[in-house]
Design a protein around this nucleic acid. Sequence first.
DNA 1: CGCTATTGTTACAAAATGGTTACAGAAACC
DNA 2: GGTTTCTGTAACCATTTTGTAACAATAGCG
Lengths: 225, 225
Amino acid sequence: MVMRARILVIEDELAISDLICMNLEAAGYESAAFYNGNDAADALERDASYDLALLDVMLPGRDGFSLLPLLRGKKIPVIFLTAKGDVASKVKGLKSGAEDYIVKPFEMLELLVRIEKILERAGKKREECIRIRDVCIYPERRQVTRGGTEVALKPMEFDCLMMFVRYKNIALTREQLLAGLWGVEFDGETRTIDVHVGRIRKKLDFWDVIRTIPRIGYRLEVKEE
Amino acid sequence: MVMRARILVIEDELAISDLICMNLEAAGYESAAFYNGNDAADALERDASYDLALLDVMLPGRDGFSLLPLLRGKKIPVIFLTAKGDVASKVKGLKSGAEDYIVKPFEMLELLVRIEKILERAGKKREECIRIRDVCIYPERRQVTRGGTEVALKPMEFDCLMMFVRYKNIALTREQLLAGLWGVEFDGETRTIDVHVGRIRKKLDFWDVIRTIPRIGYRLEVKEE
DNA sequence: CGCTATTGTTACAAAATGGTTACAGAAACC
DNA sequence: GGTTTCTGTAACCATTTTGTAACAATAGCG
């Protein structure tokens, strides 16, 4: 399993919690949600391997502030989610050692940016990963996940995929791929490329992502740049 | 005439030099080759309007390093071509102000990518898309869009269009087109050209853009700027 | 206006190309 | 040495591409 930053979401409003979790997942994090302070505390006692916690101040059971020392003790940085304009909570939270706070209602993007910044500061920066649709590619680990679960790519398939990533949005000829994957002096069937592309497409559901360029070769199509 | 980036190739091995120049031309650059340091230096004194230089370290006459100050003085970025494992040269080259180096034997594609990157950094990025009316042509993607949506050009149609673009505003005879698209030794009906032109015109609404030159052939009409 | 030379358009069948599967040799791993 | 995994190749088949021919339309020209 690939190492993704794990984020604890402690928030009693289901709608907000779900929204946050969905966005975290989409951004490539792992999320775990708890809806009251007691459950969260219990969970932390069993497993404290979280990289960051999003903590609502107003909670049923133990409130947010009472969870802070526990989290601080486990060295888990905390971002407080405070109701609008609740300056008292804000100040109290920061004094108690929260890393940051964010006022509800907030922009999801802003939350993600703050999370990224804190993880970076904490040296827990997520591995550099290349995302294409629901697929994450981790070059250093030579690992690929799809929808969060690992996909077993064979070495050559991975190399091939990396070459596509390296030259994304460029039409690569079979000869270029052959030269890039085996070296210039290798003379093999260019059709071998097709087989590898077929295997990658199948495993990653990349039928539209790796486009066939007739008579030429293939091109990895990545929208956002 | 189109403003294409001009690249100076200073390399004594004819085979390598030719190969590089061919690929540069194919990629849409203009290339000028010199086979020893003295000639290159003379040429630079006369005309320094190059956008980038590929410089072999080992050269007859003045060697690569001695040319560096001249090139730097003319603000021409340099990519060193070093023999495999010649780490000393590499370090010396980069310290002397070369933008990049590449170790022989190298992948042509990689060289092209590095060139692209440096030109981009120098603000001399060549147009990655050629626009004609509402049509965008992306040569390295082998893709064409019209009004933002992709138009599926068949391989031969794309090649044909690229030939027109390459020689825009120049009347091309059917024989020239035939030779350029299939190779000189191909003997086919010249009328086949007409069919392809017809198909391109239809797909891109290019009835006025690709003008018929009676008894000769066709010409792609583009208003400069 | 006819006539001719030339170009535009369409349809089609041959050829080329790509997706897929199965498999054998190679490599890696006990 | 035996087993498993990896990977390059060949083969098969469906699809796409494309060259050509045939026919329609147009322009040039007296």
